[in-house]
């Protein structure tokens, strides 16, 4: 079974770029998150789609012209776990 993920609905999020970090205001919780790369890029790539970690990694690799492979996938897995803990990403049972 492949674990899939879905980001918080785009309408629930307000983005604001600072110099080195990205602010994300989550309307339903009223919480301001401060995210470092590549977490904002992951959320952006996910948009409102339901995707696996591998799918996210390959979309990131294509978008940012980086090598897809073990490292990217491991990083995506780790960030997805953190974003799930923050309530910004939901694990979808498949």
């Amino acid at each position: 079974m492949i674990q899939k993920y879905r980001a918080a609905p785009t309408d629930d999020l307000i983005w604001h770029a600072l110099d080195s970090m990205t602010l994300l205001f989550h309307r339903p919780s009223g919480i301001t998150h401060m995210l470092a790369d590549p977490a904002p890029a992951i959320l952006e790539i996910m948009a409102d789609a339901t995707l696996s970690a591998d799918e996210i990694a390959s979309r990131l690799a294509a978008e940012f012209d980086i090598d897809s492979g073990g490292d990217t996938e491991n990083i995506v897995h780790a960030r997805l776990a953190e974003l799930s803990g923050l309530g910004l990403v939901e694990r979808i049972p498949v």
Binding site: L18, S20, M21, L23
Partner: peptide, 11 residues
């Protein structure tokens, strides 16, 4: 000061 530090300190 970086904007991120400023923002955090103001919150």
């Amino acid at each position: 000061m970086g904007q991120s530090e400023i923002f955090v300190r103001l919150t």
